[in-house]
Design a protein around this nucleic acid. Structure first.
Lengths: 244, 244
DNA sequence: CAGTGGTCTAGACCACGGG
DNA sequence: CCGTGGTCTAGACCACTGG
């Protein structure tokens, strides 16, 4: 039934996810682990691994002695903050058509606070990139990305900067982005943001921002990103559970 | 070496966590899975299960072909939003001594929006409870909890309401809180909050709030909670990763 | 090449929930 | 009681990394 690579577990997982999305399971009840193992021709452990991942994602839940079920509540959750997801995907999952605009690219002498975050010396320069993400043409997320000039190993075009950072970094800096450490910070929208995000409610307006330090696989900080969200259009919603 | 119950996996996990906290592993390198399995007298799968959970929590990371390591970066992260944690614990992990004050308890005729969230009829009443959490005596989190009167099966004292909701619900309502669906919303602090949280910066001040609908194990909404955070004292910081 | 983590199997027993 | 998910084992092979 399945090949190897991607792993059996991963194939079983996406197979089940598809059937869940197509609402193929009556009353949200998923067949038992033993039965699925027989049907799909894999061991029960493989089924369990796939179930575990789906459970972590919130797609299903299990009740000992009863069965495994589709988690309908999860359909309301469009965001999984623990995972890095391109903003285009986030926008699409909220039901809009995403697009990106490169607003501004400039080199800057580094500021002390940034130097501290990225372990840089005070003389260095960074590339500061401002992008704007739109949902159905409406601006919803504004981002600033700060990349130390020193890391850039190959010449690039502005168009290259329009791609997500996690694509730019390996290609032009020989760095792989492993994770962000993210601070969630509420702010009062400054004038330039009111304009950029076309905020219409009368000021002051509160906004969510993410302040993120991106780290490579050696746990060294390689970049900083700050994002501002229009929370009226893109609601950050998540599921919080006991224990898992 | 270990008894059953709690599960071997859980015991191995906390055993390792302790050794990690005590910095017993040189250069953050954790012994190989096979070696740990022999040392602790359990199967390699059990070690792997424990490792997986620690990896999800961000405590360790693994590199295929290399080894398993302590994740130092994780020490900066005090919050795991995906999990429900008592605010007292959150405050303690930020290095303060927590305390709670019950500010106000009142019964209210239900508002239309709340009725919709909790699947209530318009005639019903809810118990509205305001609490204030303090860190070293300073107010840092203000919460409102809304509980349908109808659910409360036993008489209670105000003191009972000072305990976390997930303790009150099973005891007085025969309900178990399974998860929250949480919206993260930035707001401008209204006057009562400026006073309650003793905000000193000149207004307007931006604040983070959580709007949460608590669900029981049958996925029915049973309560609503709104929390307001002083983000200057309690920073919401999290680790965002690729894929896991 | 040797050693590490990643995947998978087959089989065993336990704990829980419902009829 | 039976069927469910929860835990655990022993052993196999693969994929990757570093010397």
């Amino acid at each position: 039934m399945f090949r190897r690579n991607p792993s059996l577990t991963e194939q079983v997982k996406s197979h089940l996810k598809e059937r869940i999305i197509n609402a193929e399971f009556e009353e949200g009840r998923i067949p038992s682990e033993t039965r699925l193992a027989n049907e799909l021709g894999v061991s029960r452990n493989t089924i369990r691994d796939a179930f575990s991942r789906l459970e972590i994602e919130g797609v299903i839940f299990r009740k000992q002695g009863v069965g495994t079920f589709v988690n309908e509540a999860n359909l309301l959750v469009k965001t999984r903050l623990e995972e890095i997801v391109p903003y285009e995907t986030l926008i699409r999952e909220h039901g809009y058509t995403p697009s990106v605009a490169l607003v501004e690219v400039e080199e800057r002498r580094i500021e002390p606070e940034l130097a501290r975050c990225l372990n840089l010396k005070s003389g260095e320069t960074v590339l500061a990139v401002q992008k704007l993400f739109l949902a159905d043409g409406q601006p919803v997320i504004a981002t600033w990305t700060y990349l130390p000039k020193r890391l850039i190993k190959r010449p690039y075009l502005d168009a290259d900067l329009q791609a997500p950072v996690y694509q730019f970094l390996p290609e032009f800096c020989r760095q792989t982005l492993a994770y962000y450490l993210t601070d969630i910070v509420p702010i009062i929208a400054p004038a330039w943001l009111v304009e950029r995000l076309a905020l219409r409610s009368k000021p002051p307006t509160a906004l969510l921002s993410f302040e993120e330090i991106g780290h490579n696989q050696d746990h060294e900080p390689v970049m900083k990103a700050v994002s501002y969200f229009r929370d009226d259009l893109l609601r950050l919603r998540l599921m919080r559970r006991y224990s898992l």
